[in-house]
Every structure is written in structure tokens, then in C-alpha cells.
Nucleic acid binder design. Sequence first.
DNA 1: GTCATTACTATCCATAAGGTGCCTATATAT
DNA 2: ATATATAGGCACCTTATGGATAGTAATGAC
Lengths: 133, 133
Amino acid sequence: MDSNDAPLGYDAFRRTCPSHTVLEMLASKWVYLTVCALRRGRMRNGELARKLEGITPKMLTQTLRVLERDGLVRREVYPVIPPRVEYELTELGQNLAGLLSQIRSWAEEHAPDIKDARARASANRQDDMAVLP
Amino acid sequence: MDSNDAPLGYDAFRRTCPSHTVLEMLASKWVYLTVCALRRGRMRNGELARKLEGITPKMLTQTLRVLERDGLVRREVYPVIPPRVEYELTELGQNLAGLLSQIRSWAEEHAPDIKDARARASANRQDDMAVLP
DNA sequence: GTCATTACTATCCATAAGGTGCCTATATAT
DNA sequence: ATATATAGGCACCTTATGGATAGTAATGAC
């Protein structure tokens, strides 16, 4: 059994395994970014909306609801006017945030490499075109 | 500057940053699983199709093309009959595979926690229902 | 009275993701 | 002659996702 095999009967490669659905949930750029943003500490909806450039209110709410449902984020409502709601990572969420931050760092570090690779790929497609009559 | 700030001008929180598009590319369960599967070593299309339970041939091809375009996977074609094509991680891909494997392990380890959280969440919704007329 | 604030909800719509089925090539085996 | 194996491509269709837009509540400021 190597590190590609499941440790305790859970195997993300199997469609029906609970861990597979967890992976599905994590496979969203807004989940990544929201969890990373909350690493700093609790934030309000508006703060998150400003931090997560380009997110729509709908997506933000939807993402936070999923994270809350799955026990990664805690939502605290202050019964005041105007409304005040704060979000923070649970312990489980903080645990995950470390990993997701590494992915984010990786993306930032290797963005140039991937940009180059994409440029080469599209250049090759140009070449293919060039040899056609 | 804390670990949530970008190190070299790259910032995945910014919509137009190249690292944001990298994150978008990574945010796919099939990308996760394909890269994890290739960690063992080079594999043929058919092997991958069997390993990635539930993937359609179309999605498999599409995922491999994206990974190849972005320089994470190398595709080698043997000009034989019947066709033989092998895929393997590039150095960049292997670099990433370590991180993605950690995510996969996390998903497998914490699948029970998240299952519980989901169960609690839906139980609470039931409660909400119960107090309605 | 009405405007701003805040954190949402509720719609609608365009796009994208994903699924299905059929097609290609050719050497070997039956 | 027909079937099999392999790695796709291509066209079509349905569903899901994301985005845009507008609306809600309750209060204090003006």
C-alpha cells in the first residue's frame, strides 16, 4: 500500500466514497479563496466581498452556506440593525486552511511557469496551422 | 505582510492575476484525481479510465489536454497498432502532486467529520420545518 | 418622508460542464 | 469476412453553474 491507497477504507477515487464528495466540495476556486481569506480571522460578509474580487453576493452566500454546512465555517449573527454577521473558521476549517493556502502559494509561485506552458501550447497550435495549405 | 499576502506581486485574490486562473484550473475534482493517479508513474489512457471511477472518456481526454497544455503532464504517443499512449507527470506536475495528495488524504481522513456536520445541518433544517404550521 | 446601511433572497438568463452515442484507424485473431 | 483492441474525435443534448439584477427588512440620520 503506497500513499495512493486509502488508509482506512476511504478512497477518493471511488465515486461513492464520502471522501469523493468532500473532494468535490473542495474543488471550487471560491471555496479555496474564502477559506484562505478567513485564515486571518473572523470577517463580515462585506469584508469578504471586497477581498474576494469578482465574487457575486450570491456566490459568496452560497459558498459560505456550503462551508457552514460542512462544519468548516461558523456563522455568528448579531441581532442588530443594520444586520451584522461574522464568519470564522472552525477548528476543522483551520486545519484545512493550511493546506489550501499551500495550494494558493503554489499557484502564485508557479503562475509564470504555467503561463509559459500555455504560451508554448498555443504557439504549437499555430505551427500546426502553419503547415496546412 | 502575512502568509495571506502575495510574495512576488502575484495574488490569487485578484481576478486578473495569472495565479487566479491557475487556481481556477486546479479547482476540478478530475484534475485532483488525475494528478494523484499519475503519482505512481506513467499510465495509459485505459488504466486511468479504470482508476478514475465514473469519469467519462470525454472528461478524461479533456482533463489530460488541460494538464498537458499547462505543462503538468507529458503525453507520449507510440506509433503502433493498436494505438498506445502514455501519460506521466512533468517535474512541475510532480511538484504539485505532493500537495494535491495531501488534500486527498485530508478529504479521506476528515470525511467522517464532514459527514457528521452535514447530518447535523440537515437535522437542523428538519427542526426548522417542524416549527412551521 | 426618504435615504443609506447590511446581509441577504429571489429571479432570470447565458454559458459551461458533463453525458451519450457514433465514427476513425489498422493489425491480429477467429 | 468479422470481431477485437486502443485512443481517441465529433456532434448533439441536458443539466448545472455562475453572473446580473432587483427586491426585502428594520432602523437611525437628515
